[in-house]
Amino acid sequence: MATGVFSQGRAKISERTLRTDKWWIQPLITFGVLFSFIIYATWRAFEGAHYYAEPLISPFYSPCLTTDCVNGSSLLGTPFGHIVLFGMALSPAFIILIFPLGFRMTCYYYRKAYFRSFWMSPPACAVAEPHAKYTGETKAPLIVNNGHRYFFYIGLVFNTLLTIDAFLAFKNPQGQWGHMSIGTVVLLLNATFLWGYSASCHSCRHAIGGRLRHFSKHPIRYKAWTIVTKLNTKHQNFAWVSLIWVAFSDFFVRMVSLHPTWNKYFF
């Protein structure tokens, strides 16, 4: 039985959309960038090597928590042993990547991005989606999106650790403080973009003051809410720049691990 725009009683129009603009470009670009990131991140997580070039550590592997971690890369020690799943050895990245991945998967901005570009639900506004049935975020697995705040809180822990990584990058390969390299800038920018992404998060906005009914009774929280609200309008930008930069940071650390001369020191 016909449903959606072809339902009985609605205007009889055979096209799924009458849009004449290039509505498919945006979801296509989104798909391309996100898919490229997924491929790259998966490959790097499986690679299990070239993630540490003292003092730089890849954000994909920080904190490095297993006994497989290379010497000097474990900021918090190695509480986990060698990980094997279904007979396959997993790199230290697998223990931690689930959290930033969960943060982005449940993110209110990325929901728009992947629902449009991957699931085509809908691919663009006023373009009929191909699915016969739709229950949204009322059932598993998408109901998990309601737990975004927990990933946000865990994300803050990761941001703190990655900020520490960035400050540790003020050392030279011999472990002496007071030096700065391209890698320092790369990791500092990575931490900055990630803090921007977290601070502009909708769950952050809610926790800071959005849940209040009386702004006037909580002037400090109201002020904080107005600041987060301003950042929140740039959440999409932070989402993209932090995603691309975290991949670039990993790539840079990998290249420095293979070619130490890539990491030029300013002083």
Binding site: Y108, R111, K112, F115, R116, S121, P122, C125, A126, Y134, T135, G136, E137, T138, L142, I143, N146
Partner: peptide, 15 residues
Amino acid sequence: HGLGFCNITKCCTEV
């Protein structure tokens, strides 16, 4: 009212 059906694709805001 089915708030859980919304998957934040923001078309309402766009139009």
